[in-house]
Computed example of a mutant assay.
Amino acid sequence: METTVTEIDAGIFRLSTHVAEIAPPAGFTFNQFLVLADEPLLFHTGPRRMFPLVRAAVAKLMRPEDLRWITFGHVEADECGAMNEWLALAPRAQVAHGKTACFVSLNDLADRSPRMLDDGEVIDIGGNKRLRYLDTPHVPHGWEAGLFYEETSGTLLCGDLFTQLGDGPALTAGDIVGPAIAAEDMFKSSSLSPNMGATIRRLADLSPRKLALMHGPSFEGDGAAALTALAADYDRRISF
């Protein structure tokens, strides 16, 4: 396996590993996002077994030991499996997440105490980069789920939203909703609940210019329209 590095916006880098053995023949991508600033932030750590690959990718851009913030969508191996490996490597690094994640899991799982974030709280990491935390309970799954919005670039770090198969381009202006619907039909990974559509439409209200997907290409274009269409599909599923 190889982890590729692509700058999807100024100072925001996609670190992507395609695993052909998962869901063949298309395979499946695992993406992390490194935001370079005075206090660099890594969104997703990858699983523990991918730690050497992700660390090497980060090293192409900065000293991994200088990482300051570690965060992710929810508590799951591919999102935060290497959390403690990063904490051991980077002495100033701290995990940051919402209250539910901290109370339920991270206060115990993280080798250093995490920073607990309120819904809407902003981490100013310097260099004109500001990450706003957004509670998204059960969206797409996980009680403790939450996402981050980089305010300067208009980039929404989407976690598992829009999950799709394959190893597409790093950045696309094409359709990400259709492939996400197909993947949901296959995996059935989302926690369908009455609040799902409303939660996603709240994200659409941000009018993001870029959507950084964990499993799939990043998207550049009308992020609000893509999120609204995804919310409509979940509404359809819940109405059955």
Rank of each mutant, 00 (worst) to 15 (best):
T3K: 00
L15N: 02
T17N: 02
T17G: 01
H18C: 01
V19C: 02
I22P: 00
A26R: 12
F30L: 14
N31K: 01
N31F: 00
Q32V: 01
A37V: 03
A37G: 09
E39I: 00
F43K: 00
M50G: 15
P52R: 03
V54P: 07
A57V: 04
A57M: 05
A59P: 09
L61R: 12
M62G: 00
P64L: 04
D66H: 15
W69M: 10
D78C: 12
A82T: 08
E85M: 11
A90K: 04
P91D: 01
Q94R: 15
Q94Y: 10
Q94V: 15
V95Y: 00
V95W: 00
A96D: 02
G98N: 11
T100K: 09
D108A: 14
A110P: 05
A110N: 06
A110I: 07
R112P: 11
S113K: 15
P114M: 07
L117G: 02
I123T: 06
R130M: 04
R132P: 03
D135Q: 13
W143A: 11
G146C: 05
E151M: 14
G154K: 10
G154I: 09
T155R: 02
L157A: 05
G159V: 03
T163F: 14
G166H: 07
D167E: 07
D167L: 00
A170D: 15
L171Q: 04
G174L: 05
G178P: 00
A182L: 13
A182E: 14
S190R: 12
S190L: 08
L192C: 04
P194A: 07
M196R: 01
M196Y: 08
R202K: 14
A204L: 09
D205H: 10
L206V: 07
H215N: 06
L227S: 05
L227C: 03
D233W: 14
R237C: 12
I238R: 15
